[in-house]
Design a protein around this nucleic acid. Structure first.
Lengths: 195, 195
DNA sequence: GTCTATATTACGATAGAC
DNA sequence: GTCTATCGTAATATAGAC
């Protein structure tokens, strides 16, 4: 409403984000020009600046929104008391969420060095919150005697690295269902940390 | 010998590689200019073209040399018959080799999409050879009944992803020795694949 | 082998008409 | 909100003097 005829700002903004997401994931932030992004949406380069103050903000918004989505989705998950059930929930959630958003995940890991220092701090802060959730689970399990890891911080990073690896090869419609992939990885995670 | 006074081609070439390695790792291939590389070595940009036909070759040579070094170093390792001992050797070798060359490893993973298609094929082919070594170990262990993994290919990728994760946080002189890190990761890998 | 100079192209971002 | 046009800068790569 209250919008002039021919105005598309409500739909153009998201289309620019989508185009930037796809192009940054495919070619890398530094290798993609504002002209390319505009072309993908069917605009001239100058028109992009009605939606973003600069190229950096385009990247930062993608990463921040992705990590906020991740934290919100995780917060909406059931949280059983049992550490083993909690860890299984985390592992399966992590794989589902990340395989569902390969471009966002790729950018969030690969383009950290193209963020300004302030934006880098914000993004790594959000990621740290997510990692802390896993570390809490591991610590809880160690205290309960069901997990045995010499260092919960290192185990956290090791488990996340392993789970993130799914994104390097998994494609929907491949020879294994996502459910089967989840089970295989959960099995390895469980064995790796069990006492 | 047989070299004119003031000639430094035998030392300048490697210095250019080192500068490119450092700058590509720090800022990314696409974000680094030939002028920056030349400046790091104390040359003008044009002089670089006495050593490399173009920027792409600079990147490809770094990645190819790194992977060839990896395969040669692995081939020089002792190869016990026992699958458990072989897997431990692989895990410890992988961590030692990769933590010793963080810049090369970073580039070899992050800059794949900046390779031309032919160069990409060459690099992924070399990496595949290395991954095949781990898969052979896992298959041998499964056949011998000491390992239990539902899919050796997936287990291979999972183990490598976990081991590669060390490079995201390990720094020499930190609170844990490399030997201690090796042992922690080997422990998790062993438990994850053991029957 | 390195330099200066340059050809050619492209970049991010802005101004002002419509 | 989008366009055309442009500013100012920088990119890869090459040519030719020394």
């Amino acid at each position: 409403m209250a919008r002039t005829a021919g105005s598309h700002s409500d739909i153009t903004g998201p289309r620019i984000q989508e185009a930037a997401l796809k192009l940054f994931a495919r070619h890398g932030f530094a290798a993609v020009s504002m002209r390319q992004i505009a072309g993908e949406v069917g605009l001239q380069a100058g028109a992009l600046y009605n939606y973003t103050p600069d190229k950096q903000s385009l990247l930062f918004d993608l990463m921040r929104d992705h990590l906020n989505d991740l934290l919100a989705a995780r917060a909406a998950q059931p949280m059983p008391d049992d550490p083993m059930a909690r860890l299984e929930g985390f592992a399966r959630f992590h794989i589902r969420f990340h395989t569902d958003r390969p471009d966002e995940v790729f950018i969030a890991y690969m383009e950290l060095r193209n963020l300004t220092p302030e934006n880098f701090e914000a993004v790594t802060g959000l990621r740290g919150k997510y990692e802390d959730e896993l570390e809490d689970i591991l610590r809880q399990g160690v205290d309960a005697g069901v997990f045995a890891v010499p260092d919960t911080k290192i185990a956290t990073l090791a488990v996340i690295a392993m789970l993130n690896g799914v994104n390097t090869w998994y494609r929907p419609g491949g020879r294994l269902s996502l459910e089967a992939v989840e089970t295989i990885y959960w099995d390895m995670v469980r064995k790796a940390v069990t006492a």
